[in-house]
Every structure is written in structure tokens, then in C-alpha cells.
């Protein structure tokens, strides 16, 4: 598994012509199912670039590593703000580490 989409959180980007993850995935892997929940068509084609994770406004998508590479179950989520990126990483025991990283220079920087 590379991304995990939580259907309880995903709102399918209702009202938009396509879900945000579907619009952004560089590999054209995300799509909207009939129940309007987002899904990935082929986990093995995922680059784990996290573009969909970043794009999701309700944080329904988690990034994980395929089991063959990492069996510990760690995962991460991302929130984008205009000028920074906020990462939350959960380790094998569920401990959480957060990162606030500048992503865009503000005028006058």
C-alpha cells in the first residue's frame, strides 16, 4: 500500500468536476467511484509522491510505504497553508512528530 484513502473522511470533493486528488495525481491514478468516494486504481503504480495527500482539504489520504519495503505501519499526512507545509508523521507506536516548513517566500522576505 502507498496511499490509504479513508472513505469516512473523504467527501469526494462534492460539487467539483473531479476530485482534487484525481485532478492532481501525476500518474492519473486517483478517480471517483460511483459512491463519490476517491480511490486509487492501481497501488503498484503509485510513486508515493504525496501530491494527493497534500491536495486533500479534509486530510482523508495517508501516505504509507508498501509492506515489502517497510512493515512498521508508519504513516504521514500533510496540510498545505499558503506559505508553509505542515507534516504529521506517525511512527510504528503511534507517536506523532510534526514539521512546519516554509514553502513560499512572503513579499519582503
Amino acid at each position: 500500500m502507498s496511499i490509504f484513502i479513508d472513505e469516512n473522511i473523504c467527501n469526494g470533493c462534492k460539487g467539483l468536476p473531479e476530485a482534487r486528488c484525481e485532478r492532481i495525481c501525476p500518474g492519473d491514478l486517483c478517480y471517483r467511484k460511483e459512491n463519490l468516494k476517491a480511490a486509487i486504481r492501481d497501488q503498484s503504480a503509485c510513486w508515493t509522491c504525496a501530491c494527493c495527500v497534500k491536495e486533500c482539504p479534509v486530510q482523508a489520504i495517508e501516505l504509507k510505504l508498501p509492506f515489502q519495503i517497510c512493515s512498521n505501519g508508519s504513516s504521514l499526512k500533510v496540510r498545505l497553508r499558503h506559505d508553509k507545509t505542515i507534516w504529521t508523521v506517525w511512527d510504528a507506536e503511534g507517536h506523532q512528530e510534526e514539521f512546519f516548513i516554509q514553502a513560499r517566500s512572503l513579499k519582503g522576505d
Binding site: T48, L63, L65, C70, S74, L76, V89, A92, I101
Partner: peptide, 21 residues
């Protein structure tokens, strides 16, 4: 280092999110 990797290859931070790694 983790911040640098999150800016480019977030996967490695998942790999490291484990005491042994």
C-alpha cells in the same frame, strides 16, 4: 535532515519512523 527530505522525498521519513531504523 527530515525537513530536507520532506521537501523532496517524504518516503524516507516514513522509513525512519521506527526505532530500529
Amino acid at each position: 535532515l527530515k525537513e530536507d527530505f520532506l521537501n523532496m522525498n517524504p518516503q524516507i521519513v516514513l522509513l525512519w519512523a521506527n526505532k530500529e531504523m
